[in-house]
Computed example of a mutant assay.
Amino acid sequence: MKWKDIFLEKAVPFSGEERYLNQLWVPVKEETPKRLPRSDPSYFKTIGFKLGAESVDLHNQRKIQDKIRAALKQLTFREEHVIVQFWSPHVVGMHQVLTTKDQPCGFGVTEEHLYLFRKDSEQNLYVVGNIYEDGDISPPTRVFKRGLPEWTSDLTNYSPQQYPQQDLAISYKLHGYLALPVFDSTIGLCVGVIEVLGSKKYMSFAYEVQQIHEALKVSFK
């Protein structure tokens, strides 16, 4: 599927000062996979094990996806060149993994490089487990495990081991990085990670954190 084949939608434009900010273009609907594919290295770049049978609560996953998608439609950003992705946990065999494939995402502008970065992200599958050292996993995995946010003004502050997509992101002029855990207050657990990448090297992501927090609070109430 090509960029032009994706159907995107925007929420109703804001008024007041927020009309000068940038909303996301959000794909209308992602399909929830009935199962992740079995061992297929051409499909996923997987860290640490081969894929096997999985166990997923599809009903609860769909509910969370709908809430995240609703939250993304409420977000505004200080720049256009931004991509937002949701990383969701799945159980595969005896392991828990994070994936962003078929999960909600949003684009600040309909730009080809953002789409290509999204397609690369969808191929990554990260193992979540205590047997893996923190320095060898991705920011979404660290955020999910710790339940704490992670950010940097410039992706060059990471090593390739700390952020596997570093070279690709920088080549597409993505520099600022933010990853936030998403908690469902009804069950008291982290249900995923929202990841934000943009072209600006902001020294503070306080605005983005507040926007995401407020949007999630409305969606998960």
Rank of each mutant, 00 (worst) to 15 (best):
K2E: 14
K2R: 13
W3T: 06
I6K: 00
A11T: 02
A11P: 00
P13Q: 02
P13S: 08
P13E: 03
G16H: 05
E17M: 14
E17C: 13
E18D: 11
R19N: 07
Y20F: 14
L21D: 06
L24H: 04
W25F: 13
V28I: 15
E30N: 02
E31S: 13
K34L: 14
L36G: 00
P37T: 09
F44Q: 03
T46F: 10
T46K: 10
T46Y: 06
I47T: 12
K50R: 15
V56R: 07
D57C: 09
L58E: 11
N60F: 04
Q61G: 11
K63L: 13
I64D: 00
Q65C: 10
D66L: 10
K67F: 10
I68H: 00
I68N: 01
I68Y: 00
K73D: 05
L75D: 04
T76N: 12
V84K: 02
V84N: 04
F86H: 07
S88L: 07
S88W: 04
V91M: 08
V91S: 07
V92S: 04
V92E: 01
G93K: 04
G93E: 05
G93I: 11
H95F: 15
Q96H: 14
V97I: 10
T99R: 01
T100Y: 01
D102T: 12
Q103V: 04
G106P: 03
G106A: 09
F107E: 00
G108V: 06
G108K: 02
V109M: 14
T110V: 14
E112D: 15
L114P: 03
Y115H: 09
L116R: 05
L116M: 12
D120K: 13
S121F: 01
N124I: 05
L125I: 07
L125K: 00
Y126C: 10
V128M: 06
G129M: 09
N130E: 12
I131C: 14
P140G: 04
T141L: 06
T141C: 13
R142V: 11
R142Y: 12
K145P: 00
L148C: 09
P149M: 04
W151M: 13
S153M: 08
T156H: 09
Y158G: 09
P160F: 05
Q161D: 12
Q165W: 00
A169Y: 02
A169G: 12
S171K: 09
Y172A: 14
H175W: 06
Y177S: 06
Y177F: 15
P181S: 08
V182F: 06
S185P: 09
S185V: 09
I187R: 11
I187V: 15
L189T: 15
C190R: 03
G192D: 04
G192M: 06
V193W: 01
I194P: 00
G198I: 00
S199L: 05
M203Y: 12
S204M: 10
A206W: 01
V209Q: 15
V209E: 13
Q210L: 14
I212T: 07
H213S: 15
H213P: 01
K217S: 14
V218W: 02
S219G: 09
S219A: 15
K221P: 00
K221L: 09
